[in-house]
């Protein structure tokens, strides 16, 4: 089972908040989306046009572009349970993955 997931994270420069959000996202994806995920980190200071296109206001903002519908999560992503439920990765799904032995 391959979960195709495309995520885009908007951050502002190299602030502590940005670094924390990037780390959180990478760890979370490694653990819960072992295959078929794509992460894109956008620094709004470098690419304000991308922020404009997505009408992003706050940073960090994580946008789940695929699968649809789009989801937005605002914050540094430290509350994993809320992030997972927002991404549609419920706990029992996680346990199924663990039972498959693909990742623990």
């Amino acid at each position: 089972m391959v979960t195709q997931c495309h995520l885009r994270l908007f951050v502002t420069g190299q602030t502590a908040r940005s670094i924390k959000a990037v780390e959180n996202l990478q760890r979370l994806c490694e653990r819960y989306l072992p295959h078929g995920h794509e992460i894109e980190i956008v620094d709004v200071l470098q690419r304000p046009d991308l922020a404009e296109a997505e009408k992003v206001m706050a940073t960090p903002t994580l946008i789940r572009k695929v699968p649809l519908p789009k989801r937005r999560i605002i914050g540094d992503l430290s509350d994993w349970s809320r992030v997972l439920s927002a991404l549609g990765l419920e706990r029992d799904e996680m346990s199924t993955q663990a039972a498959d032995g693909t990742e623990v």
């Binding site: 908007f10 709004v44 706050a58 940073t59 960090p60 605002i74 509350d79």
Partner: peptide, 8 residues
Amino acid sequence: TEDYDFGA
């Protein structure tokens, strides 16, 4: 969730 700013 948690902390954020209006950097964007």
